[in-house]
Amino acid sequence: MQESAHDGTPRYPTSLGTSDADSISLLGHDLAGELMGKVGFGELALWLVTQRRPEPGDVRVFEAVLVALADHGFTPTAITTRLTYLSAPDSVQGALAAGLLGGGSRFLGVTEDCGAFLHDIVAAHPQRLPDDADEAGWDRLALQTVRVAHAQRRRVPGLGHPVHKVRDPRTPVLLRIAEDNGRKGPHLRLFEAVGRVHPQVLGRTLPLNGAGVCGAALADLGLPVGLLRGFALLARTAGLLGHLAEEQRAPVGMDVYLSVDRNARYADPSGNG
Rank of each mutant, 00 (worst) to 15 (best):
A216D: 09
P186V: 03
D168K: 06
G37H: 15
R170F: 06
L244P: 00
G103A: 11
V194T: 00
R140W: 05
R189V: 00
A123S: 11
L129T: 03
A193R: 05
L96P: 09
S4Y: 14
D180H: 14
R82E: 02
R60C: 09
Q51H: 15
G109Q: 02
Q51A: 06
L174M: 03
E3N: 12
V166T: 06
N181R: 09
P76A: 13
D90T: 15
L66S: 10
R52T: 14
T237K: 14
L86I: 13
G226S: 11
E192T: 13
S270N: 15
R167C: 01
G226C: 13
T80D: 08
T77G: 09
V256G: 07
G185Q: 07
G253W: 07
P172H: 06
V67R: 07
E55L: 08
S23A: 14
G28N: 13
P54Y: 01
E63C: 01
F231G: 08
L223I: 04
A5N: 03
L188Q: 15
D22Q: 11
G271Y: 11
P224R: 08
A45M: 13
A64C: 11
H72K: 04
V252P: 00
L86K: 11
T9S: 10
R170M: 04
G94K: 03
Q93R: 13
P169V: 06
V156T: 11
F62P: 06
L16Q: 03
P10S: 05
G37P: 15
A64K: 07
V252N: 08
G273H: 15
A149M: 10
A250G: 14
P186H: 00
G203P: 06
P186L: 08
F41R: 15
M1P: 09
L218K: 03
G40N: 08
N209D: 02
F41N: 14
L223Y: 03
F117Y: 11
E3L: 12
Q152T: 10
G17P: 04
K38S: 12
R153A: 01
E192I: 12
T145M: 03
G102H: 15
Y12Q: 10
F117G: 03
A123R: 11
A250S: 14
R167Q: 07
D30L: 08
G212P: 05
V201N: 03
G73T: 03
G182H: 06
P162N: 08
R204V: 04
A45G: 10
D7V: 05
G37N: 12
T75S: 12
L218M: 09
D131C: 00
V260P: 10
F191R: 12
L244Y: 04
